[in-house]
Amino acid sequence: MAQNLQAVGDVAPSQQQSQLDADAGQAYFDHVMAEDSRIEPRDWMPDAYRRTLVRQISQHAHSEIIGMQPEANWISRAPSLKRKAILMAKVQDEAGHGLYLYSAAETLGTSRDEMMGQLVAGKARYSSIFNYPTVTWADMGAIGWMVDGAAICNQVPLCRASFGPYGRAMVRVCKEESFHQRQGFEILLELANGTPAQKQMAQDAVDRWYAPSLMMFGPPDDDSPNSKQSMAWNIKRFSNDELRSRFVGMMAEQVKVLGLSLPDPEVRFNEDTKKWEHGPLDWEEFKEVLAGRGPCNAQRMERRRQAHDDGAWVREAATAYAAKMAAKNEVAA
């Protein structure tokens, strides 16, 4: 940007100059928004836009990292070696998603260490869905099919988010999520066609994960204060309720293939609005879990903290080694 280049000179830019830069930056930003084009890390952006993105991307990264735990819970007990391999690869993918997302957030000027510090200090949020326990093997299927399915509905539009690094990270994340969803569906399909006890296990998991996965889209539109601004910034493309309705429609069709049912007699397609509808959700429960009072909040945080603390000496060793090698190379050069 020409305006920024002019500001770099022998003399520190005056306050007036900064104001001119900000004005030009804002004009450029507004232009990008109007064109539905992309903002890149070095472009000028409003502080609130930057803050919103750091919050959203880091929460998304934290969700991937905490989200490893409920599924890692079944790696050691997966009932066939092939399922064990698939599950390991899936949980490992989630670590990879966390890495891309932290990297995308770092381009906005917040380091991964700082974001990780906020997570283990309990100052950052992650998706409340991961505070529910995985009590049977069928939960691996329900998480893949429903939780990852909801994530895909949410994340496919994010591939077009106005902030370039976020959108590009989401493209890869979404590709892998679609494998995850299919493997979850396949687990449930196998169970639903298995013994009566296996089918019951599958139905029970669908029953338990249904409402929490619908709530992954966030509060109803009339109770979602940040949505409007995010949509104006081309970060969010569709409202929470719109995405939730689409997701319900997908589930309603796919559950028939499974030969299972959704635990909601009010699911229907409204011919007038051309939208899928569902029964009432318990938003009090959502708020409780979000506030840290869900079934597994304390356990998930404790595990993350412990891994972080137990690993401190390893990170210190790697840093010390890198410094020693750098010093050695300097001497050699």
Partner: peptide
């Protein structure tokens, strides 16, 4: 497999 979600750094989880 037990290390997955418990490693000292995300790169090591992977």
């Amino acid at each position: 497999g037990h290390w997955i979600s418990r490693a000292p750094e995300l790169e090591e989880d992977v």
